[in-house]
């Protein structure tokens, strides 16, 4: 029973990732794409977590942490680029 629930939730997460990829490609403005990329990372984390429950294994927890870190840094970098036009500053003005 729980195997079928996990399998069904994996299918739903895959569908959710596909819809997010549509928004990532189509998205009219840059903030739409940034939010789509962040949601894509979160969906990937959820998929890996459900998959590790499905396999009853703890081998993928480092993958979850690594995707979380990279998604966090990527979102911050894109947000800075959208808001200020520059990602890494040589010297801060303040």
């Amino acid at each position: 029973m729980i195997q079928w629930i996990l399998f069904f939730s994996l299918i739903l997460l895959t569908f959710s990732i596909l819809v997010t990829i549509y928004r990532l490609v189509k998205g009219p403005t840059a903030p739409d794409r940034v939010q789509a990329l962040d949601a894509l990372g979160i969906n990937l984390i959820a998929g890996v977590a459900v998959f590790s429950v499905y396999l009853r294994s703890t081998a993928f927890f480092e993958v979850i942490l690594l995707i979380g870190i990279l998604s966090f840094i990527g979102t911050i970098a894109f947000a800075r680029f959208v808001e200020r036009g520059v990602v890494i500053e040589r010297k801060q003005s303040d």
Partner: peptide, 8 residues
């Protein structure tokens, strides 16, 4: 680097 700047 993102939060502060390169020189700091």
């Amino acid at each position: 680097f993102l939060v502060y700047d390169i020189e700091k």
